[in-house]
Design a protein around this nucleic acid. Structure first.
Lengths: 338, 338
DNA sequence: AAAAAATAAGGAAACGTTTCCATAAGGATG
DNA sequence: CATCCTTATGGAAACGTTTCCTTATTTTTT
């Protein structure tokens, strides 16, 4: 591994001069600039960013903490974030927590020890104590939360209006004449779940339809969860005519269950998902769902992060995105008409 | 940010002593150990791994270079790799290249500059010059390739036998009586593609079925590619009775195209995929496919990597996995019988 | 009881950069 | 022509660790 020292010797200048031309800082004459650059090329010098990081207190890396990259929602998000981060010169450490707070705490420690310039959390649990602790111990470290709110903490939030999204999903179903609408939700510890449930209730309320406890299920955001819970739900005597799934993954499970029971979507069962992930167009019939503007959100998260790092000041900023209904083929009027 | 110096002062010992107890190296008495540990706790000391990295020349991080995390195959792989790496104390830098060699080169430089302890490449292109160059410049840096072979380079490879997989897929189709079998492949620059194609030809040959150029397509491993190419394929007069898709993603496209043309799977068209990704069970009818043992491969890749790092010696090792046929619902005899 | 080995702890160099400070030469300003 | 910028470069400290070396004390061995 060739160092700046050797480059300096080769070019017959001091190491400070080498550093200066490589960082384009301070003054250097054209002549020495050339000498240095050709020495760099000759020795194939590759500066050590870890030494630089040590001095500058800037690692140019970000931590990204998500539940699970296998979940299509997070892989879409991660891609955008990685892309945008990279275009600003940052690398990202990927951390999968499975929503396990213990695991999350360990990752946070590690990330801090490795000197990341900021941490992005996606979909933390409600009242995640780790984040609180992090902010307490390292108030200067930029943090942005995607899809979560921490009113008491000084950090950045980029969120989607889940209650509005759920409300739009429900209104669509209600407008089609459905009254017996179930909610198959995900992890109840999660903002997404509680807010989507809120939107569900709100829409029902507005139309004066009584809230039926048997039609409301919380479990996890996995396909399997959607499948198992829907199967139980659809085997009841008074099965719902429509299901609002807490996410597209859950909707995949809903499809599976319905198919297994010989219930046709959308003729006998309308389904609305949430996220507008890749799944939505893979399913047959294609899934009507609520579009979370995931790219825009990831992009915004990075912008905010980079700004916070550059300006070295931590303020609280919350940006809210509104979701839209994407109508495809999985819903129908209660009479079986389009 | 509290440093080891402050801990030393608090505990009334030297910094070398603090370092020793924290690293459990050398001798320390119980008494001083306690003093140090309580000082650490009191000051909430969090050692800087970047300083340690600088001294030890070990960052405890790995670079992972993949085409695209949104591709379900890579998100599954990435998850396993991240998990296993983490359990060995390593973090991973995620890098998406979109198979762009320029982008890949940039990532490699960055990773080296950041002092990663090793780099894992998944699905590099055939004769990827970047990897060659990397090995030339930094022969000491452990590299493991997933799904690719570089006979001339001293690095580790963990691969699936793609030709065997393709052969198994084809034999299944042939055993069902199919003769007009198309191959809708992915990126032709890729090992996976060329080897799967080889298996395709081999099986055809063995049964004495002439190779039909019109039935062989290379494009990309994306859904869209599978969709577009299949659509053209199925609109021919002499359309195939079966399709061997180069990956499950491509198979998703095949399904879409078939559905649009009113061709039933499996009654009118048998389909076999490759990978056994999440998609396989989401599709309806569920996809018969070739299972790539992705978890085992990722796990093995990390084991090899960790061993190479620990033992500080670079040898060439190739581990080969064999894929299996997973029969589900997307194939049928040519007569439309099961 | 003397010598050797094991235990314990501190000092200081080193890792590879960046950056502040000092020095110096040349050009502009009054 | 003295003074002051501007340009150009080098020296050295600093970043926060680890580790080697030294010294001192205690324990074990002969």
């Amino acid at each position: 591994m060739v160092t700046i020292k050797e480059v300096a010797k080769e070019a017959n200048v001091s190491i400070s001069t080498v550093s200066r031309v490589l960082n384009k800082s301070g003054y250097t004459s054209e002549k020495t600039k050339e000498k240095v650059l050709s020495a760099v090329k000759k020795l194939n010098y590759q500066g050590s960013l870890v030494a630089a990081a040590m001095k500058k207190k800037q690692t140019l890396t970000l931590g990204l903490i998500i539940p699970d990259i296998k979940n299509i929602f997070y892989s879409d998000l991660t891609r955008t974030i990685e892309d945008r981060a990279n275009s600003h010169g940052f690398n990202i450490f990927l951390c999968n927590t499975d929503n396990n707070l213990q695991k999350e705490a360990e990752y946070i420690h590690l990330l801090v020890a490795k000197g990341v310039d900021g941490i992005i959390f996606s979909s933390p649990e409600v009242d995640d104590g780790n984040i609180e602790e992090l902010k307490e111990n390292f108030p200067e470290l930029p943090v942005v939360i995607l899809g979560g709110k921490f009113p008491k903490l000084i950090l950045n939030e980029v969120v989607v209006d889940n209650v509005d999204g759920a409300y739009k999903a429900m209104r669509h179903l209600l407008d089609l004449g459905h009254k017996d609408i179930a909610f198959v939700g995900g992890d109840p510890e999660t903002y997404a779940s509680v807010e989507r449930h809120k939107g569900y209730k709100m829409a029902l309320n507005e139309r004066g339809i009584p809230y039926n406890d048997d039609y409301v299920i919380f479990d996890t955001f996995y396909i399997q969860s959607g499948y198992e819970n829907t199967k139980k739900l659809l085997q009841k005597d008074d099965r719902p005519t429509a299901i609002f799934a807490g996410s597209d993954s859950i909707a995949v499970g809903v499809y599976k269950a319905a198919r297994e029971l010989g219930i046709n979507i959308p003729e006998q069962l309308s389904v609305v998902g949430f996220d507008d992930s890749q799944y939505a167009e893979i399913l047959y019939p294609m899934l009507t769902t609520i579009r979370t503007p995931i790219k825009e959100m990831g992009q915004r998260a990075i912008e905010i992060m980079v700004k916070a790092i550059k300006e070295k000041q931590i303020i609280k900023e919350t940006v809210l995105f509104y979701p839209d209904l994407i109508e495809r083929e999985s819903t129908m009027t209660i009479n079986g008409e389009r």
